[in-house]
């Protein structure tokens, strides 16, 4: 029931926005076509400006992951987190979540297939994936697009957010299910 509502909502949201905004604007005598083109012109330069930042970040993350160092970190952290009641299976996801969005989706899919989507691990993994975003990607893209090279304390804030999201997911899921 909720699943249906959610999928319908996300299925309808974008078409409805594309219908509603230009239509209302037209009624308000906006030159919609010209306005759209004017706004869209910025899209290209924005996307291109992000490129060097994305290359820098994705190369570093790629090297870290492909070298096997990421897996090593995961196995080193597992026994430590296990003491806090965090299932060891979830550690790869916790490490991957802030680094790579597609990576996190991959890890979650594997967990769901291995443990079943309705297991505790599956539920926690789903909640972790849904409740936080990829900190390094967001940072790279958003600051890169405007040319900010000194993110100052924002990385720490983003990572704390991820950590709270992870611990919160474990706690809330254990409480509810």
């Amino acid at each position: 029931m909720i699943a249906e509502l959610c999928t319908n909502l996300s299925k309808w949201a974008i078409p409805l926005i594309l219908l509603f905004i230009p239509l209302v604007a037209l009624f308000r005598r906006v030159r919609v076509y010209e306005a759209f083109v004017e706004g869209a012109a910025e899209g290209f330069s924005n996307a291109i400006r992000i490129m060097p930042f994305l290359v820098a970040m994705m190369v570093a993350v790629g090297i870290f992951r492909d070298s096997g160092a990421l897996d090593k970190c995961v196995s080193a952290l597992s026994p430590f987190l296990f003491k806090f009641g965090i299932p060891a299976e979830l550690v790869p996801l916790a490490v991957m979540r802030p680094l790579s969005g597609t990576g996190a989706i991959g890890v979650t899919t594997e967990l769901l297939n291995a443990h079943g989507p309705d297991s505790m691990v599956g539920r926690i993994a789903s909640t972790v994936l849904g409740s936080t975003d990829t900190t390094f990607y967001v940072l790279t893209v958003y600051f890169g697009a405007v040319g900010v090279v000194k993110p100052r304390y924002s990385i720490a804030v983003g990572l704390i957010g991820d950590l709270i999201g992870f611990i919160g997911s474990v706690f809330i899921c254990k409480l509810l299910f």
Partner: peptide, 20 residues
């Protein structure tokens, strides 16, 4: 990203000009 970027920045511009 170029495509979605152009699309949404265009729609945003319309919404902006229309006062939404």
């Amino acid at each position: 990203l170029i495509g979605v970027m152009c699309l949404w920045l265009g729609v945003l511009k319309i919404a902006e000009v229309a006062g939404m």
